[in-house]
Write a protein that binds this DNA or RNA. Structure first.
Lengths: 133, 133
DNA sequence: ATGGGTGTCCTACCCCGATAGGACACCCGT
DNA sequence: ACGGGTGTCCTATCGGGGTAGGACACCCAT
């Protein structure tokens, strides 16, 4: 699992990381039992303070997405799939709706909006061979 | 022009206000010469500090969207339409794309995404009797 | 000229999230 | 037993953005 932070995104780093895990589990790119990168390793990789990663992992543990094995590592929990499916669907739907309403407010026609959406879908599916880059 | 703040949105209040003006101009719900609500009045209406509104207006003036007439008020600038059309299109496209990519990452199919988008469009068009088609 | 409206600017304070650096408890291979 | 990996916790500190309150300059109707 590869992580990436977008410094221009409106959401803070810790939330971006948490979302990426939630979405990966929801999309079954990660399965229960999978080990996550260590706090320190991931922090070094994405150039962030270890505390920031730790906070994300802690929140996910609170939600039941992750399980911590002290001295060993963090692992995707058994019930993670169910939890993440619900959470991801809710979050994604909300953000999508917000973006669409914004587009409407900006005067875009439904036609234009759907064109943009289709383009974005295509852009996502094309370049990614579904594993590591 | 009616303003509204969403406290749960990821973007700060001042940016929300600025966006609402940009989008209103882009969608021609506001035209050059129109007067904006006064800093203090709008601040009271949306329950925010006057400085927050002032900051939004100042940023819009910097972009050429608004013109300040000291002691009189803030007005939509002559070149506002052109500026806002570009800015709004860029911002909206970016946020829409971000939301769609997120949805893809969360495992939604293109089919599901388009359904959500259509629903959001419909939800927006229904309650609002669109000024200029 | 006056008073009330306008935008502008300034200083202080505060909250939240990220940063920095350290200390501790745990697990496991050696 | 040891050492290096793991997560956890703690105390600062910093910075952005919003808040609070005030002071000022300007325009205009009265």
């Amino acid at each position: 699992m590869h992580f990436e932070l977008d410094p221009r995104a409106p959401t803070p780093p810790s939330e971006q990381l948490a979302d990426q895990v939630r979405f990966a589990v929801a999309a079954e790119r990660m399965a229960p039992g999978d080990r996550l990168p260590s706090v320190r390793a991931l922090a070094a990789e994405v150039r962030v303070n270890p505390n920031t990663v730790s906070r994300a992992w802690r929140e996910l543990e609170r939600e039941g997405v992750l399980e911590s094995r002290r001295g060993d590592g963090m692992f995707v929990a058994a019930k993670a799939l169910a939890v993440c499916r619900k959470a991801a669907a809710r979050v994604v739907a909300e953000r999508l709706e917000r973006a669409v309403l914004e587009a409407c407010a900006a005067g875009l026609t439904n036609q234009e909006i759907e064109t943009l959406v289709r383009a974005a879908c295509a852009a996502d599916l094309a370049p990614r061979p579904r594993k590591s880059a």
